[in-house]
């Protein structure tokens, strides 16, 4: 006679041990993880409005200073006809804001790595990439909030009125946010590999300032000195700025959106890949 007996090996590394008691909760879906973690990243925006104000500092300074300085000067020869400097520079300021916000998503990841929360999350049964995706989404929200504040400031205080119309302005902002999101992945990847705040800040200064100034952001490319124009022509930000500007102003040049979207997509794919690889390395 034989009763069915499941042989329990003495090996403690038995993959399905009877010993294991079920945990209290059964884990969360990836979507829930992303939602909860995005909420966590965004909470800083609510509890610490200084974060948003600080992020707005550079775009606002550029917006106010440049429009005040350049509106009193003669317009450069290749300036689009009938366009004020405010009209011209606002899309670039929004892009600048997008880029700043992207940098902050990398800085935020470095902060997370430093303050111990990543160590905690690693000990939980969650998908590690959900933290990266949450960072990226929080960046997008932050970028959008800041863009709205900047637009409100430009319209309310500086008297900006979008010449291209509301829908075109929305499309322009949408493209800006896409650029912010994709660049955010580049900086999240940098944060995942560098893991320290100082090199992140250095990278931000080294990468962002030249990219913004060697572009069509503040002066038409044709009016830049020849060598700078050469750099600006291969600078992907030039395409992004040209496209968002053409949309906002209702002038030709919207086709620059194609290289801008391609560039953004490529950066996002490469950035996300490297972010996951870098983040996977042990602490």
């Amino acid at each position: 006679m034989s009763t069915t007996t499941t042989t329990r090996t003495a090996d403690p590394i038995d993959p399905a041990p009877a010993a294991a008691t079920p945990p209290v909760w059964h884990g969360s879906s990836v979507l829930l993880q992303i939602r909860v973690l995005t909420g966590r990243s965004l909470r800083a925006l609510v509890t610490d409005p200084g974060v948003v104000l600080f992020g707005l500092l550079q775009p606002v300074v550029i917006l106010v200073v440049l429009t005040q300085v350049f509106s009193k000067m003669g317009q450069p020869p290749h300036f689009p006809a009938g366009v004020t400097y405010l009209d011209f520079v606002l899309p670039a300021v929004l892009i600048d804001n997008a880029v700043q916000s992207a940098v902050q998503s990398g800085v935020g990841l470095v902060d997370d790595l430093k303050n111990g929360i990543v160590a905690r999350l690693r000990s939980l049964p969650i998908v590690p990439s959900s933290l990266l995706i949450a960072r990226s989404l929080a960046n997008l929200v932050r970028s959008a909030v800041q863009a709205v504040i900047l637009l409100a400031l430009a319209i309310g205080v500086l008297g900006y009125s979008p010449r291209g119309g509301a829908t075109e302005l929305a499309a322009s902002v949408g493209l800006t946010l896409f650029i912010s999101w994709s660049l955010g992945w580049a900086f999240i990847a940098a944060g995942a590999w560098l893991r320290r705040a100082e090199p992140m800040q250095n990278l931000a200064v080294i990468a962002i300032l030249p990219l913004m100034f060697a572009s069509s952001a503040y002066i038409p490319v044709a009016d830049l000195p020849a060598w700078l124009a050469a750099v600006a022509k291969v600078n992907p930000l030039t395409y992004a700025i040209d496209a968002t500007r053409a949309l906002a102003l209702g002038i030709p040049g919207v086709d620059a959106a194609v290289p801008a979207l391609l560039f953004g997509g490529a950066i996002a794919v490469v950035g996300a890949t490297f972010a996951v690889l870098g983040f996977r390395r042990p602490m």
Binding site: R40, R43, A44, T47, D48, D112, N115, G116, I117, A119, R120, S123
Partner: peptide, 13 residues
């Protein structure tokens, strides 16, 4: 449960 050498909590929260 893991309590590491450095407190693994989110200082922001």
């Amino acid at each position: 449960g893991l309590t590491g050498q450095f407190a693994s909590v989110d200082g922001q929260l």
